[in-house]
Structure formats: structure tokens, C-alpha cells
Write a protein that binds this DNA or RNA. Structure first.
Lengths: 237, 237
DNA sequence: CAGGAACCTTACGACAACCTTAAATTGACT
DNA sequence: AGTCAATTTAAGGTTGTCGTAAGGTTCCTG
């Protein structure tokens, strides 16, 4: 339900006091993965390394302004951004929004409003793909019902476990295309997926045992050496 | 490009003058499919029948307030909503945002800001599921699908290996231009690519065997003696 | 036209990438 | 505090990709 609060937020603000204040607001609302930056330079480093899910940018910064920073960030990332500024001038607001910011809040602001606007953005940007019903599809003789997490093949029913389900879902969303092991790991174990490569293989084997007539010579869930895996779906229901 | 402006917008506002003003702003910005409602009742009817893509709601309405209206709309639709209000009180803003509005703009407002915020929301909500997808392109009789890492040529499918894929990708990104051997090596083996020139040739040969009708007299993947290689792409899919 | 440089072509062996199985661990439910 | 299923770890096995090398071809230049 409230997995928004698991998202990583970056606060870019040179005044330590304000930064800590915002940090406090967010933590009080349940956010815990919060990064701080006091300058454009720091912000760019954190964006590149920690890959936050949303950024709150002050417009006034010691080594440049927030607008320039946003432009720099946009060169490699599409993360949503909220501007925060003591400068409420019309042109600033228009400039900020025009550059592709997701919101522009003028100081002083209500803590709760900041959080609400942050949640609005997270909800919209990271909303689960509007498919509220998972598909049922055919793979040769196997019928995969992702909604029920059941594979049916020659009068047998095999239940999918949580990880198997997550993996098959990701593969199905990218059917016909190669999905890298990294992408698969990330969709199952989140951002911190390092070291799960072998586990992934074991899960793939389990999936193959359920969907493939001959798991060791797969027809549908193919390995693409050096690149990843690919799910071949020939016909759709 | 600007397909946002094809989206259907609904303006709910009882004062005809303001409604027309907003309508004018939107039309000036390129919007053309605009619906009007002067009351909650009308608004609900239009939401149900015309299914607008975004709604701009005044908070003060003759037969109820915008908050109640939003609640009603949410019972059957998740369309994004912007509140527009002369009442800038903190509690109103928090209430509006808390109910699930996407923005809350206080009158008087800048026309351009309204439009920008509208665009931000449309972009956010109706953004095509981020397309960082690799291309599919044609090379004479061969179809190269980088996403699936497959080359199709006279009813045969040739799978691309990891290195071949990386090289073709780099070549495609620079299609029509010469790519130096150094650049190709670097994109495959990283900065420390010294000594891989011959290996590169072997890979190029293998790619040619998959994409060229006659690998020894290449038509598409050309050698530019002393400089590098060039991929000729005539037509795009 | 000789000689060298740049590039091509083919084949083969090593090894990283991947598979497979089984045992250990975790975690949920009694 | 015990059972069972799901997941992870571990370890040995398999194989396809890649890189090397060696001989061939083409192109350029003197």
C-alpha cells in the first residue's frame, strides 16, 4: 500500500537548517531513504550513484541555480523534480515548470503540502502499469494464468511461487524482447540485487520445469548468452 | 510530439466569464477538445459520457464544492484533476491534494502557469511507458531486431551474440557515418581495448555472415580502409 | 610490379557463462 | 518448537562464445 515511502528522495539545498527541516518532515511522514546535497556538484554525484526516485531542488545554490542543475540532470535521467524557492516571481515559476519540473513550491510552504505534492508525483510517476488484471496466455501446450499464478499443462496444474510469478510477469511484459539478468533481478529483489545471479538461474530452472515440455531444451523461455533471457510468445489469446 | 494537445480537457466552473477565459488560454496553447460544465451535476455527466483526460475543477460550485465532486468522480474514474480556487487557505489546499488532486492552483493565476502545470500532469499520466527501446531496422533483405537480438533473412533467423549485438548497436547509432575501430573496440571491451583489433575483425566477419547476402562482398557493413567501418541503412521501419 | 600494410578468413581450444542438483536456510503457519 | 514450502547457497558439470593464431587476399605506394 504505502510503498511510496520506500522511494529514495534527494534534497538539494545549501542551508543545512532547511535541509534538515525537510528531512524531518519526510521522515515524520514515513520516508527513510533520504539523500542530501548542498550543491549542484554533490547533487549530480548522488543522482548518478544512488539513483533517487524523486528530487527536491532549491533554486538558489552556491555553485549555480536549480534550473541549470535540472538541465544537467535531464541529460541522463528523467526523475521527477520539485523546485523549492524563496523566489516566487512569476518568471521563475514559469521557467521551472517549463524546464520540465513536476512542481514548483514557493517558500515558506506547509510541510504537509510538500509531502502531499511529493506523494502525488510519486503516485503518478511510479504507478504500477495501469493493468489491474494480469493476463492469461498460451505457451505451446501450457496455459499461464498470471492472475491466478497457475500454469496448466497436460491436465496438470502447477502453482507459481512469488518469485516465479514476478519473473514471468516481467518476462511477459517484455515478451519477444531480451530481458537482461540485471533487469530481472531488479524487478524481483529491488535496487539492491547484487549477488542474486545464481538464484535467478535456479528460479529460471523452476519456471522451465513448469512451462516447458523439456526443461533442459527450452522452447519458450530462452537463454541469450551474455545478454539475458527471452520469452517467446507465439500466439495470443 | 505535442500530442498532449489532442487530449480532452474538462473545465468545471460556474462563472461563465472565467470558464471562457480558461477555455481561451487552452485553445491559444493548442488544445481543441475542451468540455465545459457549470455544476457538479453537469460535470459528472460529461465525465461519464465524454471521458475527458484531465479535469480542471473550481472549488466553489452552485450545487456543491469541488471536493465533493472529486470524491464522486473518483468512484468511477482515476482521471487527473487540477483544483482552481479563490480560496487559498492552507486547509483547502491540503484537503484538495489529500483527496487525490494532482495540483491545486490559487486564483488569480498566470494563464501560462495553468497550461504548464496541465502539461506536466498530462505528460506524467499519459507518458508512453518509457521507451528506451532499441530499434528494429531493415538492411536490404535482412531485418535486424536489436531488442530481440535476431537477424531475419530469407526465412532464416540468426541469433546475435553479445559482442555482435554490442557492435551492431554502436554501428547503428552511428549509421551512415564511419566508426573507427578504436571506437568500436571501446564500446565492446571498455577503455582497455588494446590488442583486440583482430578480434574485432573476426566479429565483423560473423556479423556479415548474418546480415549480408554475400559476406565477402559486403553491401551494408562496409570497411573503410585505414579509418574503420560504416553501416549503410537505406530505409527505416 | 614488388613489397608491405591493412584487412580478411578459417579453425580450434579455453574459459566464462550458464545449467543442474542437492543441501541449507529462512519464514510462515500451526 | 515443529512442519512445510519457498528461497538461497553451494558445488560440480556443460557448452557456446570469444579470442588467438596462422595463412590468405586486396589495396596502395614507390
Amino acid at each position: 500500500m504505502e510503498e511510496w515511502k520506500q522511494k529514495k528522495a534527494l534534497i538539494v539545498e545549501d542551508e543545512l537548517e532547511i535541509r534538515n527541516m525537510i528531512d524531518g518532515f519526510l521522515r515524520k511522514e514515513g520516508f527513510s531513504r533520504i539523500f542530501h546535497a548542498g550543491s549542484c556538484k554533490e547533487a549530480l554525484v548522488i543522482c548518478a550513484s544512488d539513483k533517487p526516485d524523486v528530487a527536491i531542488l532549491d533554486v538558489m545554490l552556491p555553485d549555480g541555480d536549480g534550473f541549470g542543475l535540472l538541465t544537467s540532470i535531464r541529460r541522463f535521467s528523467q526523475i521527477p523534480v520539485i523546485f523549492l524557492s524563496a523566489r516566487g516571481e512569476d518568471e521563475d515559476r514559469l521557467l521551472g515548470l517549463g524546464l520540465g519540473a513536476d512542481d514548483y513550491i514557493v517558500k515558506p510552504f506547509l510541510p504537509r503540502e510538500l509531502v502531499l505534492r511529493l506523494l502525488v508525483i510519486l503516485r503518478r510517476v511510479y504507478a504500477p502499469p495501469k493493468i489491474d488484471r494480469l493476463p492469461v496466455f498460451q505457451l505451446g501446450d501450457s496455459t499461464i494464468d498470471l492472475e491466478a499464478a497457475i500454469v496448466t499443462r497436460d491436465h496438470h496444474e502447477y502453482a507459481l511461487t512469488a518469485k516465479e510469478h514476478a519473473l514471468l510477469r516481467k518476462l511477459y511484459e517484455n515478451r519477444g524482447r531480451i530481458v537482461t539478468s540485471d533487469a530481472l533481478c531488479q524487478s524481483v529483489w529491488g535496487d539492491d540485487y547484487y549477488g542474486y545471479e545464481n538464484t535467478l538461474m535456479v528460479h529460471m530452472r523452476r519456471i522451465r520445469e513448469k512451462i516447458e515440455p523439456c526443461p533442459s531444451t527450452p522452447e519458450y523461455l530462452l537463454t541469450v548468452r551474455g545478454l539475458g533471457y527471452k520469452l517467446l510468445v507465439k500466439e495470443e489469446l
